[in-house]
């Protein structure tokens, strides 16, 4: 398959880097002000080196990418709320050209699911987005395999940064601010960690799950969201004295979407530590399935993106 990649950050660059090992070719890649385009296939090493050294991927016009030669558009621009642009416009434009779209960007799928599905119906292209929930963990693919009507509820730890902070606070009896600074030093938390610690990122993933389970109709405004900022170290200590701990849990149950810190058994399935994610699928006929693993990271997310691309081949 020929890939056009929108976004040359951690995810876009990793997709470019790994594409050839999956047997695919990159014909275009764009960042916020530059592009590299070659219908016969780019030298991805050279493009990524250029991005690292000069900040630009190439000299081509970013606006020409969507009109170019490709089978699949990989959408890896920043997740935005509300109109979910530029990701939404990129997605719809590629569909209008009858191309497939694989998204890592959560915005369009969380905020404008129904519109995307409508565009998809009018197109020969398909839209896949396994990378948007749980990074490398094949959550949406598993739901697809089970059949969404057989999944009665989903619950999980869907943000590695928040989980890292809570695990460290519990293990070291440290306060939120202290652990956040440490997480930032380690590169686990971003300079602006708002999306992660306020629960927005986990909520977007839950909204995507709800859209998949109930065939659309949900946006971030339908989720009830509480983050972890207000949790004092003493709360984790009191929980630990009783064999419990606190995790930021996202739930889609009875068509309600909720993300909030919850008390869970310290040795329970949901009490994953560090940046791990876990998703529990409650099924109609097969009890509970637990899938865990790395929920973020360039290569991890690219692995999910490339899995989707293989499904389109």
């Amino acid at each position: 398959m020929k890939l056009a990649i929108m976004g040359a950050g951690a995810v876009g660059a990793s997709v470019a880097e790994l594409a050839s090992t999956y047997g695919h070719e990159v014909t275009a890649i764009a960042d916020s002000n530059s592009a590299a385009i070659d219908p016969t296939g780019l030298d991805t090493d050279a493009v990524l080196t250029s991005k690292r050294t000069s900040g630009a991927v190439g000299d081509d016009d970013p606006d020409a990418v969507l009109a170019g030669t490709y089978d699949v558009l990989v959408e890896a621009t920043p997740t935005t709320l509300g109109d979910a642009n530029p990701g939404y416009n990129h997605t719809v434009e590629a569909l209008e050209r009858d191309r497939h779209v694989v998204l890592a960007n959560k915005g369009p799928i969380a905020e404008r699911y129904d519109e995307i599905r409508t565009s998809e119906r009018d197109s020969d292209g398909r839209v896949l987005f396994d990378a948007t929930v749980g990074g490398a963990i094949p959550v949406l693919t598993t739901i697809g395999d089970l059949g969404r009507s057989n999944v009665t509820a989903v619950r999980g730890v869907l943000n590695g940064t928040a989980n890292f902070i809570l695990s460290r606070m519990a293990a070291e009896s440290l306060d939120y601010e202290h652990v956040l600074a440490e997480a930032q030093d380690l590169g686990v938390a971003e300079a602006d960690p708002t999306f992660d610690v306020d629960g927005t990122d986990a909520a977007l993933k839950c909204v995507i799950l709800a859209n998949v389970l109930f065939d659309g109709g949900y946006a971030l405004s339908d989720a009830s969201v509480t983050g972890i900022r207000e949790i004092p170290g003493t709360a984790l200590q009191l929980a630990a004295e009783d064999g419990r701990t606190i995790r930021l849990i996202g739930e889609v149950i009875d068509d309600e979407i909720c993300v909030e810190p919850r008390l869970v058994p310290e040795t329970g399935t949901l009490a994953v530590s560090g940046t791990q994610n876990i998703v529990q699928l409650h099924t109609e006929h097969a009890g509970r399935l637990n899938i865990s693993g790395r929920g973020a990271g360039g290569h991890e997310t690219a692995t999910a993106v490339l899995g989707d691309i293989n499904r389109l081949s």
Binding site: R262, G268, Q280
Partner: peptide
């Protein structure tokens, strides 16, 4: 005040 509640609906694991 903030309440941190346990998992109740479904299963608690």
């Amino acid at each position: 005040l903030t309440v941190i509640s346990p998992l109740t609906r479904g299963d608690s694991g």
